[in-house]
């Protein structure tokens, strides 16, 4: 067995699970979304290691990028609702 590869595998898995835990336990919406984007990018890295480059590309572009952009807009609305309803400069959810 290749010891270096085993260490790399363990490191990747631990980082992935650790990122998942902090993503799911963080209270602030924006922080959770940014951690989720980091989680998606690391997942793409793991899939590149598992010989799935097609999926790594798709996950980095769609799973992390587009989902992240969608959720960031929602997080902005969520935090604007709890702290200050009339957030300046953001007319995103004007009727």
């Amino acid at each position: 067995m290749n010891a270096l590869l085993v260490i790399f595998d363990l490191l990747l898995t631990l980082t992935l699970l650790g990122l998942a835990v902090v993503t799911l336990t963080s209270r602030e919406p924006r922080r959770a979304v940014i951690l989720f984007i980091a989680f998606g990018l690391l997942l793409a890295l793991v899939w590149a290691r598992l010989r799935a480059p097609d999926l790594a590309l798709a996950e980095a572009a769609i799973g992390a990028g587009l989902s992240g952009a969608l959720m960031l807009a929602a997080a902005r609305r969520a935090s604007g609702r709890t702290t200050s309803p009339a957030d300046s400069g953001d007319a995103e959810d004007a009727p």
Binding site: D54, L57, A58, A61, I62, G65, L66, A69
Partner: peptide
Amino acid sequence: YMLWVGAYAPGGAFQAGALLGAAGVMLAL
């Protein structure tokens, strides 16, 4: 490029579509 290269290397319609969508998101931002 992603669309064309998908025939023989990692890539394809979904990845290419995601890039186009990302261009749209950038313009919206």
